[in-house]
């Protein structure tokens, strides 16, 4: 549906850790290609050379050869020792211990969306994660229901988000851009549509975005919006969703304070357009089967008013 802005691949590293892992990958591919080609080469040679001929006598019954057996163990042992060294080295560089640093962002996995909050600010958003490029940031990863997993292939390591536990991940993104990933631990019906979208910005733009999003929502004073705002409170939307600056302070579904400023909805699966929003609210289960949001059977005009209101939340 969306062409990712960046090619999604572990061979397209876009972060410091991504590059470290990429180099390790390359070493490993070289070593393992060598072994695979050796096995295939030997097999073909043996198959051609030692094919049975009619009336062959029984071949020489060689039972073992101490030197070859020693080499067979010795060489692979040296190879894995080398990779063990690289493993330890890369692990230590990629995952330094966190000494009570304040994380830049806390990402909380839920069935089936991501709650994103920025400690030290009042910013809470969902699914689209804004981060500064070219700066080392610390991600705090948690989960509220079942196990989810953070994975943006271009950034290198993935990390599980486990209910009841807290995990951290360091990240230094090379340059601004939009990066895609997906939840990588099976988490139920909509696991497939739990995409991750990271929007990396320059330090300046990032700060601007933070300031914008720290603001509370505009109060609906325009007559075209008042109806929608009222439905939002009455039709129990407010029980689950938060719109900062209004009475809506639910914490079950995504924060909608600046919903209209997002590019996508439903964990990066559809574009954020009024049509898609309308279709979703009209029958959530149809467009996202299994979703926890119930169907409210609103009248068409109420629904339109609601969507108009939500789309005014820039």
């Amino acid at each position: 549906m969306f062409k990712p802005v960046m090619d999604i691949s572990i061979f397209n590293p876009q972060s410091e850790s991504g590059w470290r892992l990429y180099h390790l990958d390359i070493y490993f591919i070289i070593a393992s290609s060598f072994i695979l080609l050796l096995v295939i080469g030997l097999l073909i040679y043996i198959a051609l050379k030692f094919r049975a001929k009619p009336n062959d006598a029984e071949p020489k019954q060689i039972k073992n050869n101490k030197l070859i057996e020693a080499l067979m163990i010795g060489i692979p042992f040296i190879m894995v020792s080398f990779f063990f060294y690289l493993t330890i080295k890369t692990m230590k560089e990629t995952e330094p211990i966190t000494h009570n640093e304040t994380p830049t962002v806390e990402i909380n996995g839920r069935q089936w969306w991501w709650q994103v909050s920025y400690p030290g600010t009042s910013v809470v958003t969902a699914n689209e994660i804004h981060l500064p490029a070219n700066k080392k940031v610390l991600l705090k990863l948690t989960a509220s229901d079942v196990i989810h997993d953070w994975w943006v292939p271009s950034f290198g390591p993935k990390m599980d988000m486990i209910p009841g536990l807290v995990n951290y991940l360091w990240l230094k993104i090379d340059k601004p851009g939009i990066y895609e990933g997906a939840c990588s631990e099976f988490c139920g019906k909509q696991h497939s549509k739990m995409r991750i979208r990271v929007i990396a910005q320059t330090q300046e733009n990032y700060q601007k975005w933070l300031t914008e999003n720290a603001k509370t929502a505009n109060i609906a004073i325009d007559s075209s919006l008042i109806k929608g705002a009222a439905i939002f409170q009455k039709a129990s939307c407010a029980g689950c969703h938060q719109i900062r600056g209004t009475m809506a302070n639910g914490n079950v579904g995504p924060d909608l304070t600046h919903l209209a400023s997002r590019q996508t909805i439903l964990s990066g699966t559809v574009k954020n357009t009024t049509e898609n929003l309308y279709r979703f609210i009209d029958n959530p289960n149809k467009i996202k089967p299994g979703v926890n949001m119930p169907r409210f059977f609103l009248q068409q005009d109420s629904l339109k008013a609601l969507v108009t209101y939500l789309h005014s939340l820039k």
């Binding site: 572990i10 470290r20 892992l21 390790l24 990958d25 490993f28 393992s32 072994i35 695979l36 096995v39 295939i40 097999l43 894995v80 990779f83 690289l86 493993t87 890369t90 692990m91 990629t94 997993d149 994975w151 292939p153 290198g156 390591p157 993935k158 990390m159 990588s184 631990e185 099976f186």
Partner: peptide, 27 residues
């Protein structure tokens, strides 16, 4: 088997190398 299992074995060793596992596990 010798070829197929070597492929499976080598990709298995990839998962023992923790940082490669971080990338590829659950994919």
């Amino acid at each position: 088997f010798l070829v197929e299992f070597t492929i499976g074995g080598l990709s298995g060793v990839a998962f023992a190398i923790v940082p490669i596992d971080w990338q590829l596990t659950d994919s």
